[in-house]
């Protein structure tokens, strides 16, 4: 009880504020186009894979759209608190875990809706686009967005300013994204950096996403990790994020 109304309310807010959709989509799209086109010639895929940089960068771009939207949507808990809305929810007979679940699901479904729009360019360069492939892609995106949303909620629950949240998130998430293999493969990165990447949960999430895009073999050659392992770590990240969010919400208020 409580999960569905919270999800629904957040989603109504989402589609009533269309400028949010534009913001979270526009910035990554420009990044993908400009960086992708600009760096194109400098990129050489590892092993004997035939791939242009725009295509390589694409899953990273989708991951960034999901990251922006999830984190931005999770931030709404701070606004809910400041505007007083949250107190009526906290005073209602629903558990904190249900509130967190509703919030995480609504944030991740907003991210998923957003990424559906961002996926449109994929039709042009994914040569074997099938329903099964679309299913894999959505599953990978769902896991990624749920993990990021839950992680964002865990951070946001205690914060009372959206500025503070923004700066913390920039500090943590931008490096995580940069080291996720989104822009360059682990296999061609310098040794020290490749180690940082190996400890980055987002690296595994993006690797799993790559498998859903290019197929297991090609993706594994690019990322150097097995798809099962990558998906496992990505899901574990989501669960840990969710547990952290529930824990944050259940601590007594000061």
């Amino acid at each position: 009880m409580g999960v569905w109304p919270i999800w629904r309310r957040d989603f109504i807010r989402f589609y009533r504020q269309p400028n949010r959709v534009g913001g979270a989509l526009g910035a990554p799209l420009l990044l993908w186009l400009f960086i992708g086109a600009g760096f194109g010639d400098a990129f050489s895929p590892p092993a004997d894979i035939e791939m242009g940089y725009l295509e390589y960068f694409f899953p990273g771009f989708i991951a960034l759209v999901v990251l922006f939207t999830s984190i931005f949507s999770a931030m709404s808990i701070i606004e809910d608190r400041r505007e007083g809305f949250l107190q009526s929810v906290l005073a209602a007979p629903v558990s904190r875990a249900a509130i967190v679940t509703g919030k995480a699901l609504s944030a991740s479904s907003q991210a998923l809706a957003q990424s559906l729009i961002a996926l449109i360019p994929a039709f042009f360069f994914l040569d074997d686009f099938s329903a099964a492939k679309a299913g894999y892609i959505l599953a990978a995106l769902a896991a990624l967005s749920f993990g990021l949303s839950a992680f964002g909620l865990a951070m946001a629950w205690r914060m009372d300013s959206t500025q503070a949240y923004h700066s913390v998130m920039n500090l943590i998430l931008m490096p995580m994204w940069l080291l996720s293999g989104a822009m360059f493969p682990l296999t061609t990165a310098p040794e020290w950096m490749s180690w940082l990447m190996r400890f980055n949960p987002l690296f595994y999430a993006v690797a799993a996403l790559r498998s859903s895009f290019y197929g297991v073999e090609e993706a594994e050659a690019l990322t150097g990790v097995s798809t099962v392992w990558a998906a496992g770590v990505a899901i574990a990240f989501g669960l840990v994020g969710f547990a952290a969010a529930v824990w944050a919400a259940q601590r007594p208020e000061a």
Binding site: R9, I12, R13, R16, Q17, E83, G84, F85, Q87, S88, A91
Partner: peptide, 12 residues
């Protein structure tokens, strides 16, 4: 409970 400040969602 009716709180001192608004607890309604303005956009709804």
């Amino acid at each position: 409970v009716v709180f001192q400040g608004s607890s309604l969602d303005d956009k709804l």
